[in-house]
Amino acid sequence: MRVQILAAIAILALAAPAHAQPQSGQTVEAIPYTTCDGSPWTASWRGDNFHHQPETGAGHPDDHMDYRTWDGTCWSAKWVGGQFYHTPKSGGAGHPDTILNFTDWDGVAWTTTRDGNGWRVTRR
């Protein structure tokens, strides 16, 4: 019986996703976002810059974040003067805002705000 329980736990662990999806209303250290090419990354804060981490491999700091928004279009965001400055990657005018709308690794739509050194997330 004990061996069967351990085997079941091992199977469940293998079936679990590689990332934990945040809970709506929670403040998290990193958000699982989708890049413009559809790659799964996470972003956390390093001062007023982002630290990007791919699903596997080494991460890197950057002053901007290129991400997919709810409608699948690609945008870039910088943290400027206490808010995000969003610019469409296809060209055109950008705008400041306190929120960032992104899609996670599973295509789920989220809104986030900065919360100190973390992200306050709300599921759409």
Rank of each mutant, 00 (worst) to 15 (best):
A30N: 10
A30Q: 13
I31N: 08
I31H: 05
I31D: 10
Y33F: 15
T34A: 13
T34V: 02
T35S: 15
D37H: 08
G38I: 01
G38V: 04
S39V: 01
A43K: 05
W45P: 00
W45K: 11
R46P: 00
R46K: 10
G47M: 10
D48C: 00
N49W: 08
F50G: 03
F50K: 03
H51M: 02
H52V: 02
H52D: 04
H52I: 12
H52R: 09
P54C: 10
P54I: 03
E55H: 09
E55Q: 12
T56L: 03
G57P: 14
G57S: 05
G57W: 11
G59A: 09
G59D: 09
P61S: 11
P61E: 08
D62S: 12
D62P: 00
D63V: 01
M65A: 03
R68N: 12
T69S: 15
G72H: 07
T73G: 10
T73P: 01
C74L: 07
C74K: 14
W75Y: 11
W75E: 05
W75L: 11
S76K: 14
A77L: 02
A77T: 01
K78E: 14
K78D: 10
K78P: 00
K78R: 15
W79G: 01
W79S: 00
W79M: 06
G81H: 11
Q83F: 04
Q83A: 15
Y85S: 09
Y85K: 06
H86E: 09
T87R: 15
P88T: 04
P88C: 04
K89M: 12
K89H: 07
S90R: 12
A93D: 08
A93R: 11
D97E: 14
T98H: 13
N101H: 15
F102P: 07
F102C: 05
F102G: 08
T103P: 03
W105I: 01
D106K: 15
D106W: 01
G107M: 11
G107F: 13
V108N: 09
V108E: 11
A109D: 14
A109C: 14
W110R: 07
T111S: 12
T111H: 10
T112Q: 07
T113H: 13
R114M: 04
R114I: 07
R114N: 01
R114V: 03
D115L: 06
G116T: 06
N117Y: 01
G118M: 09
W119R: 05
W119T: 03
R120H: 15
R120A: 15
R120D: 12
V121Y: 15
